[in-house]
Simulated assay, not measured.
Amino acid sequence: MSIDKQELQKLLWAEAASYRADCADWKRNTEALQEFLGEKTVEEVALELLADTEAIRKDLESHKRMLLAAVCDLDAIGEALKSDMDADGDELLGMVIDLKAQNTRMLGWLKDISRTSGGKGAVMGARQLLKEFGQ
């Protein structure tokens, strides 16, 4: 509907107020409203406004459904990401445990080598690595 709803509202309030007050402005306000409406009656305008309201309500319901579907999709994506992250976290934890075990075995091996006598390169290298690791 292509009617200035704010102007219509102003004219309707003016007419309603002057009619209720039974004042002389009522006739002038009625004429201003009729001039604004042109060929349309107040009833026709009211029906068009009701149709507009219903169309807006339907659009709003449609948008609500689309928004709800999007939120559900985001929830599903979030759950999938969380599941992937949990699986990745478990995998990383396993890798860290393996690396710690390897590190412990290597440090033990370096300690064994460093305890041997002599100045050979392997013994000196083992001792240097132990110093770097704070052992």
Rank of each mutant, 00 (worst) to 15 (best):
M1I: 11
M1A: 13
I3W: 00
K5W: 03
Q6E: 05
E7Y: 10
L8C: 03
L8A: 00
K10Y: 08
L11G: 03
L11V: 00
L12Y: 01
A14E: 01
E15L: 02
A17H: 09
Y19F: 06
Y19M: 02
C23T: 09
W26C: 14
Q34Y: 07
Q34N: 08
F36L: 04
F36A: 00
L37H: 01
G38Y: 00
E39R: 05
T41R: 05
E43R: 08
L47N: 06
E48T: 06
L49W: 01
D52N: 09
T53F: 13
T53V: 14
T53D: 06
E54I: 15
E54S: 10
A55N: 09
K58T: 15
K58N: 07
K58V: 15
D59V: 12
D59G: 12
L60R: 00
S62M: 11
H63Y: 07
M66K: 08
L68S: 05
A69G: 10
V71Q: 11
D73C: 04
A76P: 02
G78P: 04
G78F: 07
A80K: 03
L81P: 01
L81I: 12
D84R: 06
M85E: 14
D86M: 08
A87M: 11
D88V: 14
G89T: 07
G89F: 05
D90I: 14
D90V: 13
E91C: 09
G94I: 01
G94N: 06
L99Q: 13
K100D: 02
K100H: 10
K100F: 08
A101Y: 03
A101P: 00
M106R: 15
L107M: 14
L110R: 00
K111M: 11
K111N: 08
D112P: 05
S114T: 07
S117Y: 14
G118C: 05
K120L: 05
V123A: 03
R127Q: 01
Q135E: 10
